[in-house]
Amino acid sequence: MPEKPLNQRKFLQPEQLRELGLLLFILAIGLAVQLRNPVFLSISNITSLFTNTAILGILAVGMMLVLVTRGIDLSIGAIIAFTGMVTALTVARFPGLPPFVAILEGIIIGMVFGALSGILVARLDVLPIIATLGMMNVVRGLTYVVSGGQWVSSYQMSDGFKAIATGKLFGINNLIVIAIVVYIVAAYYIRHTRVGRRIYAVGSNPEAAEISGLPRRRLIFLAYLIMGGLSGLAGVLWVAKFASAQGNTAIGYELNVIAACILGGVSISGGVGRIFGLILGTVLLGILNNALPLINVSPFWQMGIQGLVILAAVITNVLVRRNTERDALRRRAI
């Protein structure tokens, strides 16, 4: 049966079209908020918007990799709390500790938990949502146990440690710098390295990956390991930024991160996820958080609006896809 030649390149791929739509939506929201409150597009507000979104963005990269492998990680909020707590306790005990060591400590602890989730999912074939739900509880409980229910407060932390989040590099806040570095590395990693591409291959078709001899389990493990490392990093940044470590730090934050990914077009059924979309998704979520107070929306509305935006995004996605499919059928001239 003759098929249409596929040689002409379409003007925009579907994913690009989706990202364009998201971009326009962001601009529209930005414009609307700007008209209500001119503070929105001031340099200082934009800086604070990105500073506040940086941690979310860093975590979203890891979550994207996990989602690409058809997984999900619900334990990251707890890992943030635990690593934050442990580094804060370390810093309180050894005030002279170089900030760099604190960050490394956080990353390593995070990777340990990531590795545990990775073993459960990749080696022992536990459903990701179940494995990480269990990990979430265990790690959250451990956070209370190590802290003995106490907080670590601002005065117990050295200025050097707090400067991790407040300091600047080339006039840009450290958090933003770190997030940019993470994004550049991630973009290179998933586009130009073998392992990065293979993670996508495994998510796209796990059976095929197995048959063609890709180390499927190791790649899935790797995704959780990276997610753990990034959560550990985020934990240190979080505690440095808010200058306090508590047992209930970042509770439920995994939902925001997953939301950012979904808004950014990462498919929960695996294999699909682009860095540019992810940036847009994160920024949109950041704007929602930043702009609502500026236009006098009570903070209690934030959660509901976030949820509705997510639902609207996924449903729009489905409707658009159905529409393209219907158009394709019409063109088949049968």
Partner: peptide, 29 residues
């Protein structure tokens, strides 16, 4: 057929034995 539907034809062909640049070890698209 055991393919990767979300990846390009090129990647499907070379998955598992990708061509790398000599020094940087990055994928030679």
């Amino acid at each position: 057929v055991t393919c990767y539907p979300d990846l390009s034809v090129t990647e499907n062909i070379f998955m598992g034995h990708e061509k790398l640049r000599k020094v940087t070890r990055r994928i030679d698209w």
